[in-house]
Write a protein that binds this DNA or RNA. Structure first.
Lengths: 136, 136
DNA sequence: CCTTGCCTTGACGTCGGCGTCAAGGAATAC
DNA sequence: GTATTCCTTGACGCCGACGTCAAGGCAAGG
């Protein structure tokens, strides 16, 4: 099949496929007229790449999976290098999630504090005014 | 004070300050010789920006906080526009954390499965070999 | 023959937040 | 004078994963 059909079947664009080829990730055979020519195996490779991309893997991180499939293994993650990428990604995700949760907590605290101060500073505001009134 | 001192006191670079000025975020007065001139108030504005940046806020998202401070309010988040940014950021963080947790779970599952299949497919591997042996 | 629609390569644009280099002016130290 | 260190503006580089446009080739339908 040609590049347009592969792109459509994989839900991506021809530009993306040419980009992958330029990165050496998904090289294409060529027909006599110079057109790129792909088969069903290429579709599987491409699907593997897109799945990992959807998970947020960098393009380079998908390479071991593609190599693994191309080497004849039943799945992209049937090779140790792929498993290593999985593990590294899990660590990255854990670290990132931890950071984001920390930030989320801090922002939440700041919002609550700022809202409190706003209602306290508002004359006649919704909060009960205690002995701390701004203008006596 | 001049740009170098402000940068150092805020733990950033002169390039960054010129960038903020180019974005209209932190304009500077000028001395007679054309040098940028900052005061302690500018340091506060800058600290506000850096704090939010460290939290992962976009530069544009810090603008309401800076405007708020510059308008004479006691804190950058004393204004409704700043609170709105806080709330929007919380929503973004929640959504992002949710996605990442979902991805983390899925990757974890894939890793576990791939490890299982690897140990099952390995002849003499660590797992007990059942009736599914590859080469009889 | 001509149009249409696919394909080719090449090259520049995008986004954010700066880094880095270049060429030259200004203030201070010696 | 000159050496140093600060400052100025301007402009290009970077990163990742493509988008988009340009100029032109190839095949098929009418």
């Amino acid at each position: 099949m040609r590049i347009g059909e592969l792109a459509e079947r994989a839900g991506t664009t021809t530009r993306t496929l040419r980009y992958y080829e330029s990165r050496g990730l998904l090289p294409a055979r060529r027909a006599e007229n110079g057109y790129r020519s792909y088969d069903e195996g290429d579709l599987r490779l491409l699907q593997q790449i897109r799945t990992l991309q959807d998970f947020g893997f960098d393009l380079e991180e998908t390479r071991p999976f593609v190599d693994c499939l191309r080497a004849g293994h039943p799945a992209g993650d049937s090779c140790p290098a792929s498993l290593a990428v999985y593990r590294r990604k899990l660590d990255e995700l854990d670290a990132l999630i931890g950071q984001l949760r920390s930030v989320r907590a801090e922002v939440g605290v700041q919002l609550a504090r700022a809202e409190l101060e706003a209602s306290a500073g508002l004359p006649g505001g919704p909060a009960p005014r205690c002995e701390l009134g701004g203008q006596p």
